[in-house]
Design a protein around this nucleic acid. Structure first.
Lengths: 250, 250
DNA sequence: CAGGAAAGTGAACGGTGTAAACCGTAAACG
DNA sequence: CGTTTACGGTTTACACCGTTCACTTTCCTG
């Protein structure tokens, strides 16, 4: 499947990879992400980077996309610790992994998720619209629905503006596999995602008593509050225990 | 009550006010907030600002605090359009006002709310911990509880770490008026605030389909989802209508 | 092999936060 | 009242930032 690339194209692709990796190394070291710093670490002069990105913002967009991609792999790995059929358990693990990753690599999280999305005229930014993590969580939720059949709004009962978005969403790829009648699922997903995203962002920014954040109880309550809506009734407290033990893992 | 200030102190206070006002003017003009730009607009040389703030970060903290204060006045005004006894209506209006303000003055919102809180060794930052808007919304929720008596967790049923925080919270001022037995209210507030903050931050950052954000339905659903927990049953749909009409106001 | 495109360099411009030395004036004090 | 101190301000300078332009080197290709 991999196209045969010319020598130059391979070199160029390698340079892109190096740009991203040194950018992420910079972020993880607590340094500022800057064109000059990236160039410096690569043993290259700053203007040379302009052969690869058109501006600083485009560099940020590029590494944001790659961060999202690699973080998604971490979520996927966390979910893989659960039984293949246990989609609820996978969802719990993936959600907690999202929080754990965000609080650990704050700088990377801010670049990828707490970064105001600008006017969308840049090439690479378009790919970002199809957020990898968004696809992953959405897909997980759809599979969970097929398994547990939790209530899903009918498009006709929704605000027409919302229904329109669900019929013709921004992410085109795997969502087109969902029949139109079931597109209300997307609305459930968006609301769940807003809760997950919002809570984690609040925690990362630290706009709350640090002791509350450390305990993880705010996040736990948000997730527990969503379980009934997803038909995860959890009579024996299994998922609650899983959630708490996953949160406790540092 | 106003202390008699010496001539110097008054001048200094006036300069502080001018620093804040030109900073906010800068933000509203779409310019970057920078020491040099503020100094330039004030007809002053950049290093002179160091007589008032110890660093750029301290300038940001200072204006963040003032932004929060003045935004709170806007929330209060929005709530004042409702009947004095109608605390539920006031809460709806204040919450929508928060969203409206954030989406209108994005730059100011980001400075005040989407700004990672650093190590708390700066003087003025301590005052920020006692967030004005936090106090206002918390107070409103407490008054609503006295009126509608919605369920409030018992401290003994909560995670001990959370109970500890509720017993001895960071904000000391008006919370100390709440008897220890009712401190579970603070936990309700923190969760509600996390939902409000999270949803608005998501919308401001634009990490979602713009059509969804424009419709305001995400925000509406979040608020509607909270009403039952606050004993706002709304049989005649009055508050739902109020919420939607407030959202529609541009 | 020649031509041309791509990758990289050097110098420069305007912008940023910040530190140090210095100065006049207004307040504070003996 | 006169002296001293401290405050508000300027000048200069440094190290960083994104970005542009003219130039050179390298390497692929027709």
């Amino acid at each position: 499947m991999t196209e045969t690339l010319t020598r130059r194209e391979r070199a160029r692709e390698a340079t892109y990879a190096e740009i991203v990796s040194t950018s992420r190394a910079l972020l993880r070291d607590g340094s500022e992400l800057s064109l000059r710093a990236v160039a410096g670490r690569m043993g290259i002069t700053p203007p040379a980077l302009y052969r690869y990105v058109a501006s600083y913002q485009e560099l940020v967009d590029l590494v944001a996309y790659e961060i999202d991609k690699s973080a998604t792999e971490e979520f996927r790995a966390a979910a893989a610790t659960q039984d293949e059929d246990d989609l609820a358990g996978q969802l719990v693990c993936a959600a907690v992994a999202f929080r754990r990753w965000a609080l650990r690599d704050r700088a990377e999280f801010m670049v990828a998720f707490a970064n105001p999305v600008a006017e969308s005229n840049c090439l690479r930014r378009e790919l970002l619209t199809a957020s990898t993590s968004g696809h992953y969580f959405n897909d997980l939720l759809v599979r969970l629905w097929r398994q547990r059949d939790f209530p899903r709004p009918d498009l006709d009962d929704l605000d027409p503006r919302i229904a329109e978005v669900m019929r013709d969403p921004i992410y085109p790829a795997d969502v087109s596999a969902i029949p139109a009648a079931d597109r209300g699922l997307l609305w459930v997903f968006q609301q769940a995602w807003a809760t997950l995203y919002g809570t984690v962002t609040l925690e990362v920014f630290g706009h709350m008593d640090p002791r509350v954040i450390d305990s993880g109880e705010l996040f736990a309550q948000m997730l527990l509050g969503w379980m009934p809506r997803l038909a995860i009734d959890d009579p024996d407290g299994h998922y609650t225990a899983l959630l708490r033990s996953e949160i406790a893992r540092d």
